[in-house]
Design a binder for these strands. Structure first.
Lengths: 340, 340
DNA sequence: TTGTACGCGTTATCAG
DNA sequence: CTGATAACGCGTACAA
């Protein structure tokens, strides 16, 4: 409550100049050790902490990173990725005295505006680019804005930014092999919107693996990652003349909703229909039957992304991409051999 | 990319002094209208935007609000409240050029430290205080730190901060009356941790309403709001010599997990057991059977909280509490008359 | 090591 | 009234 001490207070108390204090506190050479000690002691006694504001102004940095999330709230509500991702990011930022600025862009406002605001207001030193889309326009935008970034997974176009990647494909392959191994031949997929890089990556891995087993998808429906979308897609699949005996969903939310739809239609899961999801969200383990799914580690993803972004922000050129351990299959009760 | 224009550039272009520019842009009296127009035009032509770093330094404000969330990531992951709440907050902040600084405090670090950091780093002008606990120590801490706040719901002790409240009780009462109306007499509850104000509020409303109907709870189990906790509590309830015919959970996550546990135990919901939740999370509608629950509006909550906090931050004294429309009952298929 | 300009708006003081 | 001038907030960086 008493106004915080400034660097001038420290200087006065140590009997030196402001400049020396700054040097001492930043551990820069050019000061006698005895002077450094004196200054550090004075700073300590006064409980001095640098003012972010003054520092920001003089070094032109925000000491903050930004995350723009574009979802309507209802959808975001049950997304299992971001909260854990954010926690991972925080675990890195908190040790560096940085803050995370979050921007939730709801429908109506464009996502680009979110980044633009962050850049114009100079609120952050860099941003995380998530949910990459094909030929993502945000990459060009960020280049234009001069805002450093790290991409979550690798974009398909050119990108000057490092990528932190977590390969979804091994998990997808494992799911398909698991289903094929159980004897399924009529397997369908509920994919995510094709505009997303990760959605098509999963989708392609699905089709390819099936092909490698000499099979073709019964159908590939497109969902929008929401529960409502999962229900719709599931109903369409179940209404097919020859419905699938197994459905692989691009995320758990659609899978859990699909599970509900199948049960509501009188089907027994897994006896009549096997269901697999993607994410291993909290509820996946606890619905009935437990959902077979694919588990990634969003917390680690957040840590790695934050560290990588900071290297860029710190001026490191040629920051290498970081590859995280791939997502892996978690087998539960929702998958079993197909009905005879 | 070309360096942004400063207030001095605008002044030069308009042929006036820096001070006048500042006055004109802040709509302060003391300038001829013609001068104001000239300045505004110059600013416009140059595309000038104030540097909020410089502004921060000179007016000692951060132009940002803070939210500290204390959950371990796994739990936070499926919390339906915060994402929508944050979206509501954003909808207000974005119109004022403010930012939201998010801090996720994971286990190990104390929540208090989160607020302390936010205050010491002067990162925000005020904070949202969520998940109030009885005799919440954070209130005293914030007073000590001199950090303005708004509480989400009303704390039970003294508080100098305005509260934005959303009464859970009418919804709780409605659930109990709904169950009693269906003919249930053996009703149990899975409550939240008693340390939380909202958990005990719901719990008390539950017990009181039951008492008003001349009934007593079969049992009140305490869950921790997680799916795993919901499963445990449900198992204990179902193992009772005379198990309940209806269970009311303090949130949807526990309810959905409880639903899974009941089904895994071979029970038919709602024929053998009625289940009701709280939140109306996205999946509530889509699990099978659809979950009877209580719906609040976290987006509006966020809007109201942001507006209220801003009034405090702006120096308004005696900002009144804001009362939001109460949570309301949503009846779905998971509740029905008890077995004969 | 010190002194001081600098980053950029805000605001109090003062002259016209 | 109108508008200019300068001090201020606080740390950094460079010339002296």
């Amino acid at each position: 409550m008493t106004k915080r001490p400034t660097i001038a207070d420290v200087a006065r108390r140590a009997g030196v100049s402001k400049g020396s204090v700054s040097f001492a506190l930043n551990g820069r050479p050019g000061l006698a050790q005895s002077t450094v000690d004196k200054i550090l002691a004075a700073a300590d006694e006064l409980g001095w902490r640098p003012s972010n504001r003054a520092r920001s102004l003089s070094v032109s940095k925000a000491f903050a990173l930004g995350l723009v999330i574009t979802r309507d709230p209802a959808v975001l509500s049950s997304d299992p990725f971001f909260p854990a991702f954010i926690a991972g990011v925080e675990s890195v930022l908190s040790t560096r005295g940085q803050a995370l600025v979050l921007q939730v862009v709801t429908a109506g406002e464009s996502e680009e505006d979110g980044y633009r605001r962050l850049a114009q207001d100079a609120r952050v030193d860099g941003v995380f680019l998530s949910d990459l889309r094909h030929d993502d326009p945000r990459i060009g935008l960020l280049v234009e804005l001069g805002l450093p970034a790290v991409t979550l997974n690798r974009p398909d176009g050119d990108s000057p930014f490092p990528a932190v990647t977590l390969d979804d494909r091994p998990g997808t392959v494992a799911v398909v092999e698991h289903l094929v191994g159980l004897g399924h031949t009529r397997i369908a997929q509920v994919a995510g919107p094709p505009a997303f890089v990760h959605a098509t990556a999963r989708s392609t891995a699905f089709t390819d693996t099936l092909a490698a087993a000499g099979l073709e998808p019964v159908a590939v429906e497109t969902g929008d990652f929401t529960a409502a979308g999962g229900i719709e897609a599931t109903r369409r699949l179940l209404a097919l003349p020859e419905p699938p005996t197994a459905i692989f969903y691009a995320n758990d939310r659609m899978a859990i909703a699909g599970l509900g739809a199948a049960q509501a239609a009188g089907l027994n899961v897994p006896d009549d229909l096997s269901i697999a999801g993607f994410d291993d969200s909290e509820l996946a383990e606890y619905v009935h039957p437990g959902l077979t799914t694919v588990r990634a580690d969003p917390f680690r993803f957040g840590e790695a992304a934050a560290r990588t972004l900071n290297r860029v922000v710190d001026g490191d050129t040629d920051v290498p991409d970081v590859e995280l351990p791939p997502a892996e299959l978690v087998v539960r009760r929702s998958t079993a051999a197909p009905p005879l």
